[in-house]
Amino acid sequence: MDLRNNVYYKKFLKEPWPYTVGAVILGLLNIGMLVSTGKAWGVTSYFATWAAWIYQAIGGHPESWFYFQEKSEAAALVGGFAQNMQSLSDFGIIFGALLATLLASQFRIKKIRSWKQVAAAALGGLIMGYGARISFGCNIGTLFSGVASMSIHGWVYWIFIFFGAWIGGKLLVKYLI
């Protein structure tokens, strides 16, 4: 029998899972993350730490910056990769996503349509990175983990991300279509 037509293959590997199933699994994984590392799940703060290590390696001194003098950021900077088990989850996300797309046999190298698209992606990435740092996290570290921790900053983030998405949507229609 052809595997591609197998009902279980289709259900579990080929077709997207329902949002509610994803939500429950994410919730359970965040509990596991909190229990095993002592911190709720976050994604982007590790990007700042990695970039600081790279900057140190080429002779810079990010440790003198205000951001890296905050207690937890300073600890992450001197702790090294092995002390920072959660940052491995960022690699896990990338490899997991690759595995999922390979198992569904949907892997594809996508073409770049225009330099406008590249510029928009780079600019969007920079703004999101900056925003994530000044709001103590991205939609994972601040929204997902913040709301789960009963912290008000997660809810405030949630309200303002709507405004950001609204403005982003307007810009997208104006410049990318």
């Binding site: 770049i112 349509r113 949507g169 279509i177």
Partner: peptide, 8 residues
């Protein structure tokens, strides 16, 4: 729409 991401 190849290479175009949501919501384009």
């Amino acid at each position: 729409c190849l290479g175009e991401a949501c919501p384009i």
